[in-house]
Every structure is written in structure tokens, then in C-alpha cells.
Amino acid sequence: MDVLEGTAWVFGDHVTTDQIYPGRYLERPLEEAGRYALSGLDEDFAGRVRRGDFVVAGVNFGAGSSREAAVVALKQAGVAAVLARSFGRIFFRNAINNGLPAVIVPDTSGIRTGDRLRLDLGARQVTVLDTGAVLPVINLTGISMAILRAGGIVPFTEARLAERRRA
């Protein structure tokens, strides 16, 4: 999972979880979440995004409600990583906890929808393949990276519990 390549879908600042997964779909089963990904902003997004694509945004992506369906919807729709200047903190935790890289890139303004990107989590950088521009990644260290590498908080906790039983 350390190196991912995908096409960028660019959104603006302050995209909220109400826009990523509108409240009226909360009663639907989580298995269907992907159909409604980002439907509060773009009703066609879920139909057009391809597996492995990246969502790129400005500040405070995923602000608002704690609904985990926002992360699950993006993952199911095929989104492989979310790059933003900053995240709503619960969205960030939900992403890491579900094994979806939520990557803080201090300047995303040079990325356009359709750009091919390479995300290297080990080297902690994003390359815009068409221009060669290299953007640093400033998060994903320590515990959050350990949870991401484990595949999410559930496998991570299973390993911790097993470790405790052994101790």
C-alpha cells in the first residue's frame, strides 16, 4: 500500500460529511453507501469515479458529522486516498480507522481534476505525474500510520488484544 497511483478529483474547501454522505441516506445499509458518495456536491460522482482514484480538496475536508458512512462511501466508490490541506478531525480518524489514507498536503492548489498522481506513503510525498511537481505529506506518522498499516483500527485492536493475552 505504500505507493498508490490514481487520477485526481478536485473539490474545494470545507466539504462536509453532510455533502459526502447526506443524512437522508443514513437509514440505508452501509453496504450501499458507495452509491451516494459525494452526492451532496455532485450526484454523478459515484457513477464516474474509477477504482484507485484520489479525492483532492482544500481545507477542512470532512468537517461536521461523525458519520462513518462518509468514509465507507468513498472507499466503496473506489477512492484509494484523500488528499487535503486539512481534515475535519473525526473524518480523519474514521479514514485511518477504515484503512483509507487521509493525507495532509499543505498546498493542493496546483492539482487539477484529471491529473495523474502518485502517492508514496513511505517517502511521504505526492508527485503530479504530468508536471513532475513533488508535494510533501506532513502527517501519517506514529500511531495513525501504525493503524493504517494494520489495515484499520479493527485489525490493529485485534493484534493489541492478542498481544495482551500473550503478556
Binding site: S65, S66, I90, R93, N97, L161
Partner: peptide, 30 residues
Amino acid sequence: GADSHTCTAGAVGAVAVGVGATELATILVT
């Protein structure tokens, strides 16, 4: 709490933070 407005409980001088449902499940166990 598995809700973004969990922070409301800070009104009585608690540190109250929102988390997602999956993370809450792990906290309920550990």
C-alpha cells in the same frame, strides 16, 4: 462518543471528543 457533538459535555469541565462508530467499538472492548 460516536457523534460529532459529543464535545457538548465539555460544558461541565470534561474533555469530550467525537469518534466514529468503528473506533467506538474498539474502545468499548479495550
